Simulated assay, not measured.
Amino acid sequence: MKVILEKEGSSIYRNVFIHIPLLCLGIVLSFALSSCTQQNSSSSSASNDKPKVVATSTIIADLTQEIGGDEIKLTGILKPGTDPHVYEPVPKDTQVMEEANLILYNGYNLEPGLIKLMKSAGGKARQLPVGEVVKPLQLNEGAKGKVPDPHVWGDVKNAIAMVNAIRDALIKLSPQDKEEFTKKAQQLTDELKQLDSWVKVQIQTIPADKRKLVTTHDAFQYYGRAYQIPIAGTLIGISTEEQPSAQTVQRLVEEIKKIGVPAIFAETTINPALIQTVAEEAKIKLAPRELYSDSIGAPGGEGDTYIKMIEANTRTIVEALGGKYTPFQRSTNQ
């Protein structure tokens, strides 16, 4: 009998000692899962509490992210490489606009499909045409007559005005973050001022008789006027919706032969086939690197921010037209 009790007791103790660690492990796991759930819930709640900002173009989205940082929840509608002139909105675009607290768009009809959607969508978001803080160049668009040129960011000084407008809109949206928005906008402005000066120096290295720009569409008037490189010709006008006729192509070919530029330029958001044809017929080089016109580049690429886009374009122009390119050096002393 004694032996039996000992065996039974031993079995009981063994079972107890086996189940205690399992019980503790279960408590620990339960606590950990509960803690993770609470943290995820807290993180999700914090994210949902942030002001919801929507930016249409990649350029505006980039500038807004630089200023807003982690203080806002930013959604950029257009993806890098997408042409805003011809973009057709999708149902998801309606949803993000309806949920937004602030919508930042370029204006001057750069993104006609998205502007139309924005005007018709519900929601109570403030709508700010960031590009329209700049007095536009008026260009002749044939039957349309004079229309405002929307490509205002080509002049870096105009980008600084856009930064100020974005900063003020974010402060109005989230006053408690005024100090942070102001600090980041000032840092960005300082860098843009350096960039503006650098571009001027780079373009002046191009021989004067070669300092002319021929591109696919008329997106570089602000850049040309700011940095003293005239736009000698374009295949199409302000909007990429335009389809050039055979006569237009031939006129550009003849113009290129007259002015004698060493190269002409394709653009990242437009099929290069037609401008390639122009280059072949004019017996002139097509620059080996394309220009960023209406969009920044893909993440990880040389033009994946506004600043890097302007830097890359300047390098492409300078090298193709016979200038001496010096990389942009950012100074932190300003």
Rank of each mutant, 00 (worst) to 15 (best):
Y13F: 09
R14P: 00
N15G: 15
N15A: 13
V16S: 11
F17C: 00
H19E: 11
L25D: 01
L25H: 08
L25S: 13
S30I: 05
A32P: 03
S34K: 07
S35E: 10
S35L: 15
N40P: 00
S42F: 14
S42C: 10
S42I: 08
S43T: 12
S45M: 14
S45E: 14
A46E: 15
A46H: 11
S47R: 12
S47Y: 13
N48I: 06
D49I: 03
D49K: 15
K50D: 04
P51L: 04
K52P: 01
A55H: 08
A55N: 11
T56N: 12
S57N: 09
T58P: 02
T58C: 06
I59L: 11
I59V: 15
I60E: 02
L63G: 08
L63S: 08
T64Y: 10
T64A: 12
T64V: 08
T64P: 07
E66Q: 15
I67P: 03
G68C: 07
G69I: 00
G69L: 02
E71P: 02
E71S: 05
E71Y: 09
I72N: 06
K73Q: 15
K73W: 09
L74A: 12
T75G: 04
T75W: 00
T75H: 12
G76K: 06
I77W: 07
L78H: 07
H85K: 03
V86L: 11
E88C: 01
E88G: 06
P89K: 05
P91Y: 02
K92Q: 11
T94F: 03
M97H: 13
E99V: 06
N101D: 15
I103Q: 01
Y105K: 09
G107T: 09
N109H: 13
N109W: 00
L110V: 06
E111T: 00
G113H: 07
L114P: 05
L117R: 04
M118P: 00
R126Q: 14
Q127N: 09
L128R: 12
G131R: 05
E132A: 09
V134T: 08
K135L: 12
P136E: 05
P136F: 03
E141L: 10
A143T: 13
V147S: 11
P148R: 06
